[in-house]
Design a protein around this nucleic acid. Sequence first.
DNA 1: TTCATGTATTCACATAAGCGGATTTCCGGT
DNA 2: ACCGGAAATCCGCTTATGTGAATACATGAA
Lengths: 114, 114
Amino acid sequence: MLNERMREEINLLHARMCSGIADPVRIALLYELSQGPKNVSALVADLGLPQSSISRHLRVLRDRHLVRWRREGAMVYYELTDERVIEALDVLRDVLYGRLERRANLVQAARTKH
Amino acid sequence: MLNERMREEINLLHARMCSGIADPVRIALLYELSQGPKNVSALVADLGLPQSSISRHLRVLRDRHLVRWRREGAMVYYELTDERVIEALDVLRDVLYGRLERRANLVQAARTKH
DNA sequence: TTCATGTATTCACATAAGCGGATTTCCGGT
DNA sequence: ACCGGAAATCCGCTTATGTGAATACATGAA
């Protein structure tokens, strides 16, 4: 059904989507947008970064179809295309938390040993 | 509980984990390993890429704690650290498939219009 | 110790991305 | 038509990441 060529192609798109979320600023943006649509200025205010940076990152997100946008007057509102992206991010974050927690426990154990 | 500084730090680690999976070769590797532990030669054979490439990608994966490894004689076996990474990848892949399917339907509709 | 095999790392290079400031474009109000 | 605010893009620059060939390292066997 899925030959080698197609699989490689899928992996490429898959990786492209992943690289869309593989940046701390964009992760922050996605979580902000998980609360609902927001315009650029609001996001700039939320993250406290230069407007050019935010715009650039939003562009990456929409190029990868991770967010949608619509113009409303002078402002542009962005919103998540698919909530499942947050779901995936949450899963990975849980994995991360598990690791950090385990590490913290080791530190704790080492400390009480003295 | 989670101040601004900590949140940024978490996002950084989160992004680092994501960038670990944000490559077509590494995605292929992770799916191969989801079938169980494999050594490097096996992975080289599976993916048909130069051994140096595979080794380099495996290094990225273990630097990010996405895989574990153990030496067994002359060979080194790699395995997933946490199955949930595959779960997250699957979610994202489903999102991707949905997009592709929707696009295919549009093409289909446009074709039958004539 | 020497050799063969499996794996990791180095090398030189190419390309991709990130950054902030400046500029441009787009829009509604006047 | 012009102005001001919102957003996107351009600019020069820096850093990160990918590539395959070659080389180095590790291990078990002879």
